[in-house]
């Protein structure tokens, strides 16, 4: 079995195909993630950008199969990790992936560590879940990890409780814990949103340095395109549960194609361009993803909206070099002209 597994060939470390995650609520079915696909390779850093509510967290919780069910359910798609579908794994196989192959750090470091247990307890148990080591070895490894993420006096601090650390320090602890089993993928869900602006850059830099050092692939979720520019190789722009544009970071900035992406880039404050008083911002609200009729979900806010946008979801067009965009502006008009 394990030999067969090892010999199995796969082209991408992680491959998400047509993932759909829906929530059943009293108001109707929330199509939080509605048919998205992307890939991640070893050592790559992928950014997922989008406004709050666009389905970024649900995407990544789906990868870990941490969607609360009920009300949530992964209704379609496949998530191939090293060629094997995570959605088909048993509970125990899944536990082997979680924290070991793929690990995750969350938005709010203040609530993501267990307030009732010492840092040492929480770190040691993580290591011992996945590695056959003694408590002492696990403690030594934990201290080493804490030093790596820049916790001063790690030997003593490791015996403290989470509330004895600042927000930034707690996020460092989370990172240390997430990387303590040498996971192949680190998912960071808005890791700096809850932190002071001054700390944000440090934490991002830390993630970047460590992932380079350990050759970890990273999925970085953010609503800040500015962060993506500095860190990511590839970017997926999410809107209302769909990926509307996907490209190498450089291409996305050089040629933002989807009107939503364009708006996002315009709204990033820039130092090299004079601002005419106020920042550009996309007007209007993201749509309610309950019972959304077939249409481009961005059309109520789009300056370039056409008739067809209101009645059909645009097809995905490859602009070359893996630059994909879902917008009627780029679709082959001929193909759809009869509609």
């Amino acid at each position: 079995m394990s030999i067969a597994k090892a010999q199995k060939t796969y082209t991408h470390l992680l491959e998400v195909n047509g993932l759909k995650t829906y929530f059943k609520t009293d108001a109707g079915i929330v199509k939080a993630v509605d048919g998205i696909s992307f890939t991640l390779d070893q050592g790559e850093t992928l950014g997922i950008v989008g406004e709050s509510g666009s389905g970024k967290s649900v995407t990544n919780l789906s990868i870990m199969r941490l969607i609360q069910s009920p009300p949530g359910k992964i209704v379609d798609g496949e998530i191939l990790f090293e060629g094997e579908d995570i959605l088909k794994l048993s509970e125990s196989e899944l536990r082997h992936i979680r924290g070991n192959e793929i690990s995750m750090i969350f938005q709010d470091p203040m609530t993501s560590l267990n307030p009732f247990l010492r840092i040492s307890t929480q770190m040691i148990e993580t290591i011992r879940l996945h590695q056959d080591v003694t408590r002492k070895e696990a403690l030594a490894k934990s201290i080493e990890m804490l030093k790596l993420v820049g916790i001063p006096a790690a030997e003593e601090r490791i015996h403290n409780y989470p509330h004895q650390f600042s927000g930034g320090m707690r996020q460092r602890v989370m990172i240390a814990m997430a990387l303590s089993c040498e996971a192949k993928i680190l998912i960071a869900d808005e890791p700096t949103t809850a932190l002071d602006v001054t700390i944000q850059a440090q934490i991002l830099e830390l993630i970047q340095d460590l992932s380079k050092k350990l050759n970890t692939a990273v999925i970085l979720i953010t609503h800040d395109l500015g962060v993506v520019a500095g860190m990511c190789d590839t970017v997926c722009v999410m809107y209302a549960g769909k990926i509307v544009e996907k490209a190498k970071t450089h291409d996305l900035y050089a040629k933002p194609s989807h009107p939503y992406t364009f708006g996002l880039i315009q709204s990033v404050p820039r130092l090299d361009k004079a601002q005419d008083g106020k920042l550009f911002s996309i007007e209007g609200q993201p749509p309610n993803v309950i019972d959304l009729p077939p249409c481009c979900p961005f059309h109520p806010r789009c300056h370039k909206v056409m008739d067809i946008c209101r009645t059909q979801y645009p097809p995905t067009k490859d602009l070359g070099n893996g630059h994909e965009v879902s917008c009627w502006l780029f679709a082959d008009k001929k193909e759809h002209s009869h509609e």
Binding site: M64, L66, L94, R95, H96, I97, R98, G99, N100, S103, M104, F106, D108, T111, S112, L113, N114, P115, F116, L117, E125, T126, L129, H130, M174, M177
Partner: peptide
């Protein structure tokens, strides 16, 4: 949130219930 963290670490539900 911290129970979600424990799950994301790969802990068994029994350990999550009693320890966390």
């Amino acid at each position: 949130d911290y129970i979600r963290t424990a799950k994301a670490k790969g802990m068994k539900s029994s350990a999550i219930i009693f320890k966390h």
